[in-house]
């Protein structure tokens, strides 16, 4: 089986979800190639040469200095044909989830988004992904010869294995047209110094129990101690205490961190849906009947305002700073 993994980069660095997709590819088993599509590819090729893959396939064009999803889709489809790829894996990032369906259409391939696990049944790949924001999970098989999957971040270890032999590097010519560049990313504006809830390994979220935005320093301090991102319940976002970008739940972000700490969040169905796949869940809430406790691994029934300061200090100590 030939597996092609798309390497997404940001500021010249290959992103972690792409390295995780390489691990997922090795777990599926087969020959793994990677695709690089950019204006300036030399630094990316150097990085790719240290990856545990057999070949690096490159498409380059000066117009790609500004990312375009249509142009990238055309190039990735061309690379997939060149590599005779049976399976194409793309990290399910904001960019990846826009790119994967395009590649699927171009290759007349079936596509399963945000895969959390792969299994094999009679030689066929069964891909499972959460639906209804995690209230259920759906297992599917792709019925076309070529199959496209996006892999949810944080679930596979980023591949750090060195290659057995240095991968070959091959260039592919793509017949881009100007129409492919009718949409171009002009700028990436990063929120300074904040970890995004969607890709965080640890998340500390606050809800209505925090009583107001002025009390979020407690959430931020605990998050700081953990090295975590801050999240919020829909109630806290709807009240205008926190931005939409922090909302965890069915109409916010669906997250799968290693540790999720819910503070003053009762646990409405739509919130639980967004975070119940976290590896470890901690709940702190005054109400011992709060639904959040039913899915928590650890928790404290009590006043968050009294618990958070000593907890923050203790976490700092344990993490050695």
């Amino acid at each position: 089986m030939n597996i092609l993994v798309y390497l997404e980069d940001r500021n010249g660095q290959i992103r972690k979800p792409s390295l995780e997709a390489i691990s997922a590819a090795h777990a599926l088993g087969g020959t793994v190639s990677v695709a690089i599509i950019a204006a300036d590819t030399s630094a990316l090729i150097e990085q790719a040469k240290s990856l545990n893959v057999s070949s690096v396939i490159v498409a380059s064009d000066a117009r790609m200095a500004n990312y375009s999803s249509r142009a990238t889709g055309r190039a990735l489809a061309a690379i997939a044909r060149e590599a005779k790829a049976d399976v194409i894996l793309i990290g399910a990032t904001g960019r990846g989830k826009d790119l994967a369906p395009r590649v699927a259409v171009r290759l007349e391939a079936g596509y399963v988004p945000e895969v959390t696990t792969f299994a094999s049944e009679g030689g066929e790949i069964i891909a499972t992904h959460p639906v209804y924001a995690g209230k259920a999970q759906m297992s599917l098989k792709v019925t076309t010869p070529v199959k496209v999957f996006s892999t949810r971040p944080n679930l596979w270890k980023a591949s750090k294995d060195a290659p057995a032999a240095e991968p070959t590097v091959q260039n592919v010519t793509v017949d881009w047209s100007d129409a492919d560049f009718k949409e171009r990313t002009k700028e990436l504006v990063l929120s300074q110094g904040k970890i995004d809830v969607a890709e965080a390994d640890i998340i500390v979220s606050g809800g209505r129990g925090m009583r107001g935005p002025e009390n979020w320093t407690l959430i931020e301090s605990l998050a700081g101690a953990f090295g975590a991102a801050t999240g919020a319940s829909r109630a806290a976002v709807d009240a205008g205490w926190r931005p939409h970008s922090e909302q965890v739940g069915q109409t916010g972000k669906t997250v799968s961190p290693t540790l999720y700490v819910a503070v003053g969040i009762s646990g409405a169905v739509q919130h639980l849906a967004g975070m119940s796949s976290a590896k470890t869940i901690v709940a702190i809430n005054k109400d011992e009947n709060a639904p959040i406790f039913s899915i928590a691994d650890y928790g404290i029934v009590g006043d968050a305002f009294e618990i958070l300061p000593p907890l923050t200090e203790e976490i700092k100590k344990l993490r050695g700073h």
């Binding site: 990312y67 990032t93 904001g94 960019r95 949409e183 171009r184 990313t185 002009k186 700028e187 990436l188 504006v189 990063l190 929120s191 904040k194 970890i195 995004d196 969607a198 890709e199």
Partner: peptide, 9 residues
């Protein structure tokens, strides 16, 4: 996008 916003023309 993760960690920020892209400006797209």
């Amino acid at each position: 996008v993760e960690g920020g916003r892209e400006v797209i023309e």
